[in-house]
């Protein structure tokens, strides 16, 4: 158990520090790298609570794909981020106030939940796994109880894809493309002509 506890505090501390550095780092690329670190350590935390499937999917999807694209975009952008930050202090009071309000709400809510006897009855139901691995357990409810939400989430992703194409895809005229099929179907009969040339005459 002691190893687990140490690991937990290690991961938790790294996650929080990395999360802080995401907003504190001066270089946007560093911010993204810290974000990746935060994702990765969160995956470690998931492993610690026994949710290994979620942990791996977090790494594969967020770290392996989404964050790569983030990094890609941030590296390509030529934005002066220090300039963008100039208004930061100006908005800090309002932002801080909102943050504080949310924090107080959270404390109230968690406090009531923790100490309020009247809500104890509605405690969140525990999942029963019947000895399944959590991959199986997830699959079992995603494809039965939550099939509606699951399919609808697919529709949302489809819309996002259509949207990205609608808003950005342009067919540029005059771009030379390799057409594999026309290369393959090119026929010697139509492209080459064999001529017999008599000596001394030319074509």
């Amino acid at each position: 158990m002691i190893l687990q506890t140490i690991t937990f505090y290690l991961f938790a501390a790294i996650t929080i520090a990395a999360g802080f550095m995401v907003i504190a780092a001066r270089n946007p690329v560093h911010s993204v790298l810290y974000l990746i670190l935060a994702f990765f350590t969160s995956a470690g935390l998931f492993v610690l609570i026994g949710a290994e499937f979620i942990a791996m999917i977090l790494v594969i999807v967020y770290v392996g794909a989404v964050a790569v694209l983030f990094l890609f975009v941030v590296m390509m952008l030529d934005i002066n981020f220090t300039e963008l930050r100039q208004g930061f202090l100006q908005y800090l009071p309002i932002g801080g106030l909102i943050g504080l309000a949310l924090l107080i709400e959270l404390i109230m809510v968690v406090g009531v939940w923790q100490f309020g006897p009247e809500v104890a009855g509605h405690a969140i139901p525990q999942a029963t796994t019947n000895g399944m691995t959590n991959t199986e357990a997830l699959g079992n409810i995603i494809y039965t109880q939550y099939v509606y939400a699951f399919q609808a989430a697919g529709v949302i992703l489809l819309i996002a894809m259509i949207g990205a194409i609608v808003l950005t895809h342009r067919t540029r005229p005059g771009v030379k493309k390799q057409r594999i099929s026309s290369q393959v179907y090119r026929d010697p009969k139509t492209t080459i002509e064999v001529k017999k040339i008599k000596p001394g005459q030319g074509i």
Binding site: A149, A152, A153, V155, I156, I159, G163, V166, T168
Partner: peptide
């Protein structure tokens, strides 16, 4: 279901608002 329906609708509407890109 509420949230997913709402997002399905909204995402399509965001794109449509910017349709004349």
């Amino acid at each position: 279901a509420l949230y997913i329906g709402l997002e399905t609708q909204s995402l399509a509407l965001y794109v449509m608002a910017a349709f004349s890109r």
